[in-house]
Amino acid sequence: MVAHGDSSSSEKKLGNGLNDLPTFNAENLQQNMKTIHYSRTFMSIIGGVVAGIFGFTGLKGFVLYFLVMAFTSIGLMAKAKFSVHSYFDSWNRVLLDGLFGGLMSFVLFWTFAYDIVHIF
């Protein structure tokens, strides 16, 4: 997806995987976190528009949201070449961080697209 493509440049290699000591550069870690938030927001907006255009209502839309988020997580992991620990300090960063942050944007764009396409 687009969001992962253009975020690539900002992800930096931190420390090497062999090291069992935590050798993280705090700034780079923060940059990576920012990238995650950016991708998640982007995907939640896209997901909202998609859900609205398809006319999903009720639970279906929220299921779609979580599917999109899971997809984003997989994409981020693929971007980190599945060695999450060389970019982040724990798996939760990739899997859970900002999971609900995009919900408000999702609902807004879902409603907007749904109203424009379906109810009038």
Binding site: H37, Y38, T41, F42, S44, I45, G101, G102, M104, S105, V107, L108, F109
Partner: peptide, 10 residues
């Protein structure tokens, strides 16, 4: 007002 915050950050 509340939902566009994420959009603005983009």
């Amino acid at each position: 007002l509340f939902g566009l915050r994420g959009f603005f950050s983009l």
